[in-house]
């Protein structure tokens, strides 16, 4: 059974229709990549799955067999969907360690594992700081991954986890994603999944089980295929060529 099924999803924000009739599936234990140029609707799709207020949505979102289309954001999170925003807001007066403690309590996550992850990400020094205040782009991504680990989600939605991250940190980020999704442990009790939005696909070299990628152009899913092949094509010919090629098909 697919962990996530998106059926005929259209999203309007104000006057603008951003997504049209999107269909997408994420299997258990699968990492799916979403590729597409700026403004194509990739982030909107993740926000729609998360139930962002103010979105006018038609179609269906099924998570683990449950229709979550009408649920609010925190209900979806509690069911096991975790989200790493592209640009998370800074929270004045809210310390990272305090938020982490609260999340560990809600989700019963293992404090030792979190400690290890924060060491691996080299962000122990940020624990006592106010969340995302004055953090660099890379620090934000790492901190969000740590918070995601505390949530221990069944499905992780990762919006450009590689943007703003230096080259040396990419393998670390990849390892932590593998950890959270359980891809690093073949005997993992539960199969976990993820959707990774990536602009240049850099992160895909470092995560396992990323077997499928969808391309979104102008709010529509145009095709899917092996991420390595798709990225090679995009790098060589660009998204425009991809669109032309699809039209020929």
């Amino acid at each position: 059974m697919a962990m996530l099924k998106v059926e005929g999803l259209s999203v309007r924000v104000g006057e603008r229709e951003i997504l049209r009739e999107v269909n997408l599936e994420v299997g258990e234990g699968e990492i799916v990549a979403l590729l597409g140029p700026n403004g194509s609707g990739k982030s909107t799709l993740l926000h729609a799955i998360m139930g962002r207020p103010g979105y006018e949505v038609s179609g269906k979102i099924i998570f683990n067999g449950i229709d979550i289309t009408g649920m609010n954001t925190s209900e979806r999170a509690k069911l096991g969907i975790g989200f790493v925003m592209q640009m998370p807001p800074a929270l004045k007066g809210v310390k990272l360690e305090d938020l982490l403690k609260r999340l560990s309590k809600i989700y019963g996550s293992d404090r030792d594992i979190l400690k290890r992850i924060s060491e691996e990400l080299r962000i122990e020094g940020l624990l006592g700081r106010e969340l995302h205040r004055g953090f660099s782009g890379g620090e934000m991504k790492k901190v969000e991954l740590l918070l995601l680990a505390a949530q221990n989600p069944k499905l992780a939605l990762l919006d450009e986890p590689d943007s703003g991250v230096d080259l040396e940190s990419l393998p670390i980020i990849g390892r932590v994603i593998n950890d959270i999704v359980g891809a690093s442990d073949s005997k993992a009790r539960e199969k976990r999944s993820a959707i990774i939005v990536t602009h240049m696909g850099k992160i895909l070299k470092h995560v396992r089980n990323a077997n499928r990628a969808y391309i979104i152009l102008n709010g529509e899913v145009k095709c899917f295929g092996n991420p390595v092949d798709l990225i090679e094509d995009i790098e060589r010919y660009g998204f425009a060529e991809c669109l032309r090629c699809l039209k020929v098909i």
Partner: peptide
């Protein structure tokens, strides 16, 4: 945006408000 962010972590709207208000007072 901040309320929504906290709700994506599983906090109810009321919990999110209280976290932000307490943070504001810091």
């Amino acid at each position: 945006e901040q309320l929504y962010y906290l709700m994506t972590k599983g906090f109810s709207e009321e919990e999110a408000r209280s976290i932000l208000v307490r943070g504001f007072m810091e």
